[in-house]
């Protein structure tokens, strides 16, 4: 299943509908097994596009299609539910809950719908071990930045989502950790057959990306580099 965009236009709330949209994307496809990198200068609309693709924002016009479902036609609660089942998120600043342990952070999303996270604990431990993060009783903010981003990755993968969104995932890391995270994102796409959609300027991520879209002023400035299936 692929995540596809058709005729996507978006204006901020309160903007005149006759005005040019701040984001105007004719088509994008994100397919399983690939890393799609969205790059561009600040203010070009990269993060807005990410929020539209993940259903956090509803587009003013156009479609965001997952299988036969158009996210643009879903209400907010339905999009929340879709995101919970199908998406993982990684952020520049990790956004772990600092007063929780790494394990508690990884199973956090289990509490959104259930009372207990017990049945996810084994998987969470396995993910932490896979990404080389100690299963410690210490709070998450005591970990190194690289470890914190790997905890965030483990958190994103708890429900084995088919799509992973990463917003500047290496921007807060040193070069070595940035390279590690970039490598992990590439591995996730290929080994787990995930559609990995990354917003970044990082050349390391350019190296692992299967396709790169460059945005300028809310439009695709250059044709996608790489092969679009």
């Amino acid at each position: 299943m692929r995540l596809a965009v058709h005729g996507l236009r978006h204006r901020f709330a309160g903007t005149d509908v006759a005005a040019a949209p701040m984001l105007d994307i004719a088509a994008i496809n994100a397919v399983p097994g690939e890393v799609l990198l969205i790059s561009g200068p600040s203010g070009s609309g990269k993060s807005t596009l990410l929020y539209l693709l993940s259903g956090l924002l509803k587009p003013s016009e156009g479609e965001v299609v997952w299988g036969d479902m158009d996210l643009a036609r879903l209400g907010e609660d339905a999009r929340d539910s879709w995101r919970r089942q199908n998406c993982g998120f990684v952020f520049q600043n990790f956004y772990l809950i600092s007063e929780m342990t790494p394990l508690q952070n990884v199973v956090l999303a289990a509490y959104f719908t259930g009372w207990s996270a017990a049945r996810y604990l084994d998987r969470a431990r396995h993910l932490l071990a896979e990404f080389g993060v100690p299963d410690t009783a210490r709070h998450a903010d005591t970990l190194s930045r690289g470890e914190q981003q790997r905890v965030a990755l483990a958190r994103a993968l708890l429900f084995e989502p088919p799509i992973l969104f990463a917003d500047e995932p290496t921007a807060s890391l040193d070069a070595e950790n940035g390279k590690q995270i970039a490598g992990l994102l590439g591995d996730l796409a290929r080994n787990r057959n995930m559609a990995v959609i990354v917003v970044s300027h990082d050349p390391d991520l350019m190296d692992v990306a299967d396709r790169v879209i460059r945005l300028e002023h809310g439009r695709i400035a250059a044709p996608a580099i790489g092969h679009a299936p």
């Binding site: 609660d77 539910s81 998120f89 952020f91 956004y95 999303a109 959104f112 958190r155």
Partner: peptide, 16 residues
């Protein structure tokens, strides 16, 4: 506020 927004991004409902 940011923490709650992150929860939303991770799939938490508005009701949560």
């Amino acid at each position: 506020t940011t923490r709650l927004a992150i929860l939303r991004a991770l799939g938490a409902s508005r009701a949560y």
